[in-house]
Write a protein that binds this DNA or RNA. Structure first.
Lengths: 196, 196, 196, 196
DNA sequence: TATGAATGAGAATTCATTCAT
DNA sequence: GATGAATGAATTCTCATTCAT
């Protein structure tokens, strides 16, 4: 079992799932894109479902590591939050296929994921939740809001914007920068106009 | 062609799609839940795809009307926004199947919907966008943020929370009230702690 | 039961069968072309098969009567044969739908026809056979050939040319006249060049 | 993909199409007659239609080669024509299923074949047309008749007799010999009695 | 008589998965 | 390990026919 072959299959699956969605993706298309025989996929994955789940875990792991590494570079909690927002949205530019896959399949397979508990996704969300909680503890964020709910709300907003960016297919560095700062602004400062 | 039959089919489709998702739903299951023969569905809808799209349009129309009616009851723009948030989240309690269907299928069929332009969904979003824009014009909301982006962000946050509520299956009136006020608070006032 | 309605159905069936063939023809299309409800067809015909057979019998009857009337106008047996040839080929111009229907469906439903013995078709052939036999008796035609086989051969040749004319869709009076005289010539005089 | 499997499928299709006709033939019946799974047919043919067309082309090719080989054995043009007649009619004895298939499906699919241009059938006809034309050039056949029309007429006559023979199911070598010589006689010498 | 909505048997086709090579 | 031909269960959709009105 060449170790690179598993990754090649995952890479092909990512592209096909992103382009067609799980149900319209054909195993044979993934195989041919990976340059292997159909049957070979079953030496590395139990089933098409298993391939989806494995891919999901793999890419989420990668996202989590990426995020952690980046966040360690910042000290300030508020800066970390800005960074989280930016990193999430940047996926649209840097890894549009991962973005589309995560964005669409995560919903599509909500049912799937229900049984499967989806630990990786929760881990990803947890990073955000911990950020919020830390901010509250440090006295930088209001502490009258539940971190669990706040993090979900932020994730939802980011995910929707990421999907919008990916589907629009004309994301640019400027646009992502702009969106990230506006989103940070919304969440940090709120929409209300401070009456002078 | 009894007009009630079309609605009965849509109702059955809603339940089956919500429970299993479009691709795992069987036309024959929808038919038998509606108490009709398989073929009858094809007298009212061209195909399974058409059934999905029709259901989507139908329920979005209903959502839009419901929302419009409710919003007319409020005068104040801020109150309207609170109301929007509340109405959206309430779906989890009042129409959990609609909530699950909209929440999941809207993503699932992103591709689908891309060609199909999805006017109903845009209309729904537009209500929120117009609310934001009006708030800005009235001087109640900061006008340095794009309504289009703000509305997307809010929608994303609400949609994610709605999905969470539906999937958790233990939503209560209190919980929804609580979530709605917290979300309003986040978006209106922001997360930043005002330094005394 | 308005007597005209049965004929209207047959007329519509003729057009639809001629255009699409029996198996691709839809009963509902025939009904709507006849300006009646689908179910009404079943008040006049037992089934789609019965409609085909009835139509076939009806049009063959009509052909036979038409042929008999025309042939009575000639006295000479040879002239009658020329006339037969001409009348058959003329269908392409005068009743192209009948021509296409007879030409194609007669083969298509060979199986059909096998059980059903097809008396009308035999009657039509019999006219030709009797002509041949009479010609032999009168000493105008060679009597060393079986009339049954000769009539089949002539019918086959005419049928093939009729189909060719119908499918080519550019039959003219001149063309039919020309074909008829050439065919008569072939069968009457033969292809051999008389050595001087 | 064993090359023999494609031929086995064609062979089964031939038998089923000949017995039931294209529209009444079931793919699963063809598959089971070939001793394979239903799906396997679709590894070799795109669709049931494609199977029909492929079978038609394949068998016409075979017919054309068979005919060409046989005709090369004769030198005399008149003898070639006799041979053509005989070979065509012999199908009823030697390959009754091919005879029935060609005879019936060729008409049945006239519409089909119209778009599809049907080059193989034209090629088959062309052999006969060229024979006629050569006969005229050599001065053995009258040259006041169009080869295109003459060949169609002969083909039609032969085809009709072939169908008759196949459907009667009691063709014998003697019968075919007899028919062939009578048909040759008709076409070569004509029906007219030479007045002494 | 006439209607046409409803029926439901039936058929083609797809594609994840297997397994002999 | 790798292959890819073969499998066959599963599913959508069609359309002749019926029957309550």
């Amino acid at each position: 079992m060449a170790p690179g072959k598993r990754e090649r299959i995952l890479e092909s699956a990512l592209r096909v799932f992103a382009r067609k969605g799980f149900y319209n993706a054909k195993v044979s298309e993934i195989a041919s894109m990976a340059g292997i025989a159909d049957g070979t996929i079953y030496l590395y994955f139990k089933s098409k479902d298993d391939l989806l789940i494995s891919l999901f875990e793999d890419r989420m792991d990668w996202l989590i590591r990426r995020l952690s590494t980046e966040l360690e570079k910042c000290d300030d909690i508020i800066e970390k939050l800005h960074r989280y927002v930016f990193i999430h949205l940047s996926l649209a530019l840097e890894y549009p296929e991962v973005a589309e896959f995560i964005t669409v399949e995560l919903r599509q397979s909500a049912k799937f994921v229900r049984e499967y508990a989806n630990p990786k996704f929760n881990e990803y969300l947890k990073i955000l939740r911990n950020l919020i909680a830390s901010g509250q503890e440090e006295g930088r964020l209001r502490d009258d809001l539940e971190p669990r709910l706040v993090s979900r709300a932020i994730f939802g907003a980011l995910d929707e914007l990421l999907l919008t960016a990916v589907l629009s297919q004309r994301a640019s560095t400027e646009m992502i920068d702009d969106w990230a700062s506006q989103v940070s602004c919304i969440f940090f400062d709120g929409l209300a106009k401070i009456q002078p």
